[in-house]
Nucleic acid binder design. Structure first.
Lengths: 340, 340
DNA sequence: TGATATAAGGAAAACGTTTACCTAAACTTA
DNA sequence: TAAGTTTAGGTAAACGTTTTCCTTATATCA
């Protein structure tokens, strides 16, 4: 057992003040860039001492006093999935540029966990909460009501009005895919999707259907497979098992995510079906691995890398306080990626 | 422009105290489970008020006073990669059970960014810092020196002694792969790996080489390809390009990560080589997508799902204060996954 | 010149906790 | 019964900021 050495302490504002021969008020003002309150000389001197000592305002101290921490929370359902990770990385990077840090919470699509985290985040006085794939929950509705700074990503607010939104035009994307199927004469077609309670999935589907209807094409119920499971790979596999029975093979399948397409592809492989020759698989998200392990996949590229700055821009707008009447919304451009 | 509504406030300890007719000290003691300080009645009454009001101690208030927040930091190089995300998810889940939350920092393998984050985390008074793939940096060494609670994952401390470690026995795993190549008569073999400054990569490699040497097998320098790039897919591809020239085809390639194997596989596909018939590809990590999109890949399964509890157990040990003289270390079991 | 505005900066209160110290009552024990 | 001990709980001092008042000195203006 070694001598118990307590971790080092960061220098406090008081040390900086003493060292620079000014009051702590002045140091605080220099740090926070309160102009017209310190002469150029003083500012310079304080800055130098700050650099020398490696001073950084204590998160707890400033949060306590100003009721706002330097932290933003990101709540995701399932942190391990590729696209969540992509968004998380993008948001983290964008926050870093604004000198903020990110708490990551995994809600596992569970309303109770989500509520627990929401309350904890308020207790942490986070400056904002970013909801990636939010579910409907009492506290979420309450927070929306109370004007908590919320930004929804991909899936729109399931808890009533309020909050910003960052995503793509899912309706249009769905229609684009339908148009592509028609144009390439890939009919009859089928669809495999996950729980459509997510606005993203629902809108992709609606867009797809609307376009088909406009073209006078009927989608029989048997051509649309949906499963409640959380695992998209499994959904894709089971969907393909159901669709590809008795030698019936649609000319194309719209899979609502790349992972669903991966699952469907496995079944195709098992059945000896060539993709895309026998059946065209169309995914969604554009997993960065596609080029390497799924060159047979057509998909919609969602620019997750750019979601980060969009989210933070929205937060800035909200923080600025001049709430725009309609909740601020940023739609980013998607793009079809046709590999097959 | 709507009326500016400030976000709701959480109830404070003072409200709880008043409501329950006790002092705030008593409430604090109940919350923190200080026994022998409140009667069963009082405890019960306070508990009820807390539940009613939905009280949660303010993170800032308690952090400021006790010099410890409820936050643990996870520093990763590249948050978007699958295995980082897997570890992040596991750590997050394990922390949740201990009523802690996780800040996620992406260092991009950059020593300056890492240092900046380390200092910011100290300013946030985080309870511990988990380094996934740490790089050597001045502040890291300083923190190790000062006894900051650090746990290294996968890649051992590059900043001197100290800190806990969670990972697998990379030496053994490397040897296992070599043994497999020998046993299956998959010689000559080759290796593609990324920057070996990471202890994980270095040890895998060493284990592999040692076993080969023990078997009396020479690995010519030309059979070992390494590239400094950060992108493992690219590394794998370029490695395969270099290895598979002039019709020379090794019987097996040990790729130091699954992504490297994906990259190599792409080149094999381009050359019309069958995997594993013509050349066996052996990866590392066991990406969860393997079953679906890379059924040709043999790999080592690293139980990232279990890293979370291991990390938090280690933190608990460190927090308990009775520092074990040799830094605590947890080695988790790996497993070969032979699909091919 | 006197009045007034502005610049520069200090003193001190408050934010919500935790905890060392104190007190008073209720039990022991000799 | 007196002295000591335990139990239950209150008081108040930090913790490190930010910010509202002040104060003083200097510049501006009529």
């Amino acid at each position: 057992m070694t001598a118990q050495r307590r971790p080092g302490k960061s220098p406090s504002i008081e040390m900086v003040a003493r060292q620079a021969g000014v009051s702590i008020a002045t140091v605080s003002r220099v740090v926070n860039g309160v102009s017209k309150k310190a002469s150029a000389d003083t500012t310079e001197r304080v800055r130098r001492v700050i650099a020398e000592l490696g001073y950084r305002p204590s998160g707890a101290g400033s949060a306590l006093r100003s009721r706002q921490s330097r932290i933003v929370a990101l709540l995701v359902p399932g942190a391990a999935s590729a696209y969540m990770a992509a968004v998380a990385a993008a948001v983290e990077a964008a926050l870093r540029e604004r000198q903020k840090v990110m708490i990551l919470c995994d809600t596992a699509e569970d309303a109770n966990i989500q509520d627990d985290y929401l309350l904890e985040m308020r207790a942490q006085m986070v400056r904002g909460m970013v909801m990636l794939g939010a579910v409907d929950s009492p506290v979420l509705t309450q927070f929306l009501d109370e004007g908590e700074p919320l930004v929804f990503v991909n899936r729109k607010s399931p808890g009533g009005p309020g909050g910003g939104f960052v995503g793509i035009d899912n309706l249009q994307a769905g229609a684009d895919i339908a148009a592509y199927f028609v144009e390439r004469e890939r009919l009859p077609c089928a669809v495999i999707h996950a729980d459509p309670s997510s606005s993203a999935t629902a809108e992709r589907l609606t867009g797809f259907r609307r376009h088909m209807k406009r073209e006078g094409i009927k989608l029989p119920a048997s051509a649309i497979k949906t499963y409640p499971s959380v695992d998209h790979l499994e959904i894709g596999y089971r969907g393909a098992v159901a669709l590809l029975q008795n030698g019936r093979v649609p000319r194309s399948i719209f899979c609502a995510s790349d992972l669903i397409a991966y699952g469907a592809h496995r079944r195709c492989r098992e059945l000896g079906l060539a993709v895309p020759e026998d059946v065209l698989l169309f995914g969604f998200d554009d997993n960065p691995l596609n080029d390497w392990v799924a060159p047979w996949l057509d998909t919609v590229h969602v620019p997750y890398e750019t979601f980060g700055t969009a989210v933070v821009d929205l937060l800035d707008t909200i923080w600025a306080g001049t709430q725009t009447q309609p909740a601020p919304e940023i739609l980013l451009p998607h793009k079809m990626v046709l590999r097959a």
